[in-house]
């Protein structure tokens, strides 16, 4: 019989496809971007080391701050509204009403729509005079809103469009709701809790892993918003939809400032990590609270 390999080596060998890909396609580029963030580099020519100049430049670059603010506003709005909305829809779907299967499919379907087609469709939906959204608003006596032309409205148009893609969250919440032990509800019913109290003090805590998962994932997803403003507004009007990734893309591929773009990208990584850690920390606190 052949010599037995130590188990950790066997394990590593099995996960090696992923491991090699991780090192090669993810870790290496991330490290490269760290290197280039300390250089001036234009794709067309060799890099020149510039030390911390790119990071210093950012502090005084008002567009950096604008894009950062827009991205954070978008993220918080989208995660808060989208989270509440998808939880609400999931609760509706769990009541086993007639038509549940159809509605679940309808809510999930948009997540499969490619972003290019969605951007085209929503751009049309948002047109001032012949778009569906303003037609809907008009019927309740609001508007018309120049959704993509008005700097005050454009970012909210992006938030509204982003809500269309929360089907994944809904589906995950539905699964989590299904797993809430019946016995808990029965206990709550004995305690005479109302529907809302029952939801807040029984349902929500017992599905907190799903809440955490959805919040983290949709935060990360929202921080990356890129294709929609790229295709719909090109960051305008008046930089109202200039989001972080779009500014990175412009610097890297349109202005020929790959070094500056890499520095921006690193700030983005740090923000994503920081927000994730905050979310994890909060969840730990909440879990302890529940245990106490």
């Amino acid at each position: 019989m052949r010599r037995r390999w130590p188990t950790w080596l066997v394990g590593l060998a099995w996960v090696s496809p992923w491991l090699v890909g991780f090192v090669w396609f993810l870790a290496a580029p991330v490290a490269m971007s760290l290197f280039y963030s300390f250089t001036d580099y234009s794709l067309l020519e060799k890099s020149v080391p510039v030390g911390l100049a790119n990071y210093r430049e950012m502090l005084g670059d008002s567009l950096f701050w604008v894009s950062l603010r827009n991205t954070l506003v978008y993220t918080f709005a989208s995660v808060a509204v989208g989270g509440a909305m998808s939880l609400g829809i999931a609760v509706l779907l769990e009541r086993r009403l007639p038509g549940t299967g159809f509605v679940r499919a309808a809510v999930f379907l948009p997540t499969l729509v490619p972003i290019v087609a969605a951007a085209i469709g929503w751009r049309y939906m948002f047109t001032t005079d012949n778009g569906l959204i303003n037609a809907g608003l008009k019927s309740v006596g609001v508007g018309p809103v120049d959704w993509l032309g008005d700097p005050r409205a454009a970012l909210w148009a992006m938030v509204l469009m982003g809500l269309w893609f929360y089907g994944t969250s809904v589906v995950i919440y539905t699964a989590a709701l299904r797993d809430v032990p019946r016995s808990l509800y029965e206990a709550a019913a004995i305690d005479g809790l109302g529907a809302w109290r029952r939801f807040v003090s029984v349902t929500l805590p017992s599905m907190s892993p799903a809440v955490l998962f959805n919040t983290v994932m949709s935060t990360i997803w929202s921080l990356q918003i890129f294709a929609a403003p790229l295709l719909m507004t090109r960051g305008g009007p008046d930089n109202a939809t200039m989001v972080f990734s779009l500014y990175v893309y412009r610097n890297a591929f349109e202005y020929g400032r790959m070094g500056y773009a890499s520095a921006l990208a690193w700030v983005q990584i740090l923000i994503a990590v920081a927000l994730t850690l905050v979310a994890l920390g909060l969840s730990r606190k909440l879990t302890y609270y529940r245990a106490a």
Binding site: A28, P29, V30, M32, Q224, S262, A272
Partner: peptide
């Protein structure tokens, strides 16, 4: 612990690595 790394990689946005991946 390595599996935690797998999960963590889901958090790296494509827009962050697109430029260096291009160089690679």
């Amino acid at each position: 612990s390595l599996f935690l790394v797998v999960l963590a990689t889901m958090m790296i946005p494509f827009t962050v690595i697109m430029a260096p991946q291009y160089l690679l």
